[in-house]
Amino acid sequence: MSILIIPAILSGMMMGAVYALVALGLTLIYGVLHIINFTHGSLLMLALYVVYFLNFHLGLDPYWVIPFVLPLFFVVGYCLQRGLIAPMSGGSEQNVLLITLAISLMIDNLALYFWTSNTRSVDIAYAYDTVEIFGALLPFGRVVAFVVALAAAPLVWAFMAFTRTGSAIRAVAIEKRGAELVGIDVNHTYAICFGIGTACVALAACLLLPTFYVTPQVGYTFVLVAFTTVVLGGMGSLPGALLAGLLLGIIESLCGLFLGESLGQIGIFLAFILILFFKPSGLFGKRAGA
């Protein structure tokens, strides 16, 4: 039995690390801007297409475009928040919910119009080379995704903890008025934070594409799990998102093993309901009002 279970757990962790990375961006945006960002999945989809076309037309390797795609999507996120979401919401948090949903629907449908619903994938020869870990044979592309995604989390954390912009972000997150009083540009800081969250999905896209596919609907697959991860980890908690992402990856993989591949995601939502039943604030969440 263990000959099946160990590889399933390991391969679940590989996917879980990517879930965690997508959720990291989402939880950062939620924790600082206090908004539910429905564009997150659409931006992941866009990033996947950018990486795909860079490979298809220019023959660029998805891993080597990271230094280009990350800053690009940081700017996309910054402009989206500063130029569209903030001015249209008029400061009301309910409006933001509808605006991000509307933008997401538009991006998804434009993608469908221009790029059709065909499933596309890149052909990177070495992505499916196998690596042996604890007797399990894992695709090289998934191992890279795991390592890089897990390395990104402490980097984001260190940025928040040790840089001037990082402490401005933490200050704005909890005490907006106080931040304005010391002269922090709150709108700029919000947009930077949105940009970092968007850069997280761009990184996820570069890591995913070699062993995954892209369609205009691919965002939903991840954003639903990402929302689950964020809530499960405790809204706004970075370590929570990381741990919950890995956990959900493993659960999905094990459920796939026992119930059949297509039912794997049932396990995610089952675990979600069970954990929230016993700990409503999530794994790392604080109780309301605490």
Partner: peptide
């Protein structure tokens, strides 16, 4: 007061010189 409760005293003071 509007201090930053989730930040250390040191970080609160340093942010005072942000602008």
């Amino acid at each position: 007061r509007k201090i930053f409760p989730n930040l250390s005293v040191r970080d609160n003071l340093k942010l005072g010189a942000f602008r």
